[in-house]
Amino acid sequence: MDLDVFVSAHRADWERLETLLRRRRKLTGAEADELVALYQRTSTHLSQVRSASPDPELTGRLTSLVARARSTVTGARRSSWRDVGHFFAAGFPAAVYRARHWWVPTALLSTVVAAALGWWIGAHPEIQAAVAAPDELRELTRPGGQYESYYSSHPATSFAAQVWTNNARAAAICLVFGVLLGIPVLWVLFQNMLNLGIGIGLMSSAGRLDTFLGLVLPHGLLELTAVFVAAGTGLRLGWTVIDPGPRTRRAALAQEGRSALGMALGLAAVLAVSGAIEGFVTPSGLPTWARIAVGVAAEVAFLFYVYVVGRRAARAGETGDVVAADRTAEAPTVA
């Protein structure tokens, strides 16, 4: 493409579009139709420049012009509490449901890894000795030891907030850094499963595995599910870098990235619930069966939310992406 010839041929259209966008009075019907036509034409020009002669200055000018024209054509849109309600009623559960082929295998494989690590540590005293000194191991696993006192070492409110912050950070790492081919996600998963496996192994070797599970299950079911959802979404984002499918890599990453951002907001709410359970229910004086029942109820409620509400929303066309009016316009590509 001869860039000078291209600019000379279409400069009049761009200047006319600029003039219409600067109009302070309301456009007439004919002017509005002209603005829409010029917007579409300039979008095509932008695509042609990007494909054939990516001049930074011209690309920047046309990108700004197209964005302003799009805002004028589609109109401004303000978010409202209705959007928040729609997100939690349809968008978020649909996104989690659509990602189930990633996070369900992640959950199953991670659970197997944690169980295997727990068995390995519990069955090999030399591995336990590498974890901590004998006196420290006794302090960790004895009745009233650190594994038990951990959940009541701070006031419930501050402890729940601390737990929520730590878990939300782990989920955010999975979602944000999944784009790095999913490698940070695998590291976060391994660290979580290693910590869980060490607890299983040490407490089982001390004959107190039932106590450990009674402390972990009330909050751990929902908490780990949220982490697995975040990890699965991060891995899917990483795979999108490798194989974007029929979409362009840029469009695929934009769509999956927006979905991951929404997932982060939804999972923050889920982790707030698990944090509240860990802060108030786990260290409570309720019998073990009652505390576990609370955790099971929370997990069942979340799975119902995903597999019933989310499936219905997904079948209705929800994807977890932002509404079309809030997405960046994609210029048509040149064949």
Rank of each mutant, 00 (worst) to 15 (best):
R208A: 05
V36A: 14
R138L: 12
A171P: 06
A168E: 02
R315E: 12
G144D: 03
L265T: 15
A276M: 12
L46T: 02
L140C: 00
A161D: 12
R78P: 11
S43V: 00
G122S: 12
R258E: 06
V66E: 01
L237G: 02
S8G: 14
I127Q: 10
V113W: 06
Q128F: 01
T319F: 09
F190V: 04
A132K: 13
A114D: 00
T165M: 13
L35P: 01
S43H: 07
V5C: 09
F280K: 14
L286E: 11
Y150E: 13
G275Y: 09
A324I: 01
L202G: 01
T59S: 02
T141L: 07
T72L: 11
R169Y: 05
R22F: 06
P93C: 00
V229Q: 05
G178Y: 02
E18R: 15
V113F: 08
T28W: 08
L194Q: 00
E18L: 12
M193L: 04
L209Q: 06
S284L: 04
A329T: 14
L62F: 05
R311H: 14
A89K: 09
S79G: 14
G238W: 10
A90I: 09
D321Y: 06
L267W: 08
E278Y: 03
V73T: 01
P246M: 09
G91F: 05
V300D: 14
V296K: 09
A313N: 14
L108K: 07
A314G: 11
R77I: 03
G285N: 07
G317E: 12
L303K: 08
R236T: 00
G320S: 06
V270C: 03
E256H: 10
T333W: 07
A325D: 13
L108T: 11
T44Q: 13
V96T: 09
Q146F: 12
P125E: 07
A12C: 10
G197D: 06
T42P: 05
F159K: 02
V188R: 12
G144C: 04
D13I: 12
R327V: 08
R247V: 02
F212G: 02
A231Q: 01
V308M: 15
A264T: 06
A161V: 15
T63F: 05
R100M: 03
F87D: 08
L202E: 03
R315W: 09
N195S: 07
W164Q: 10
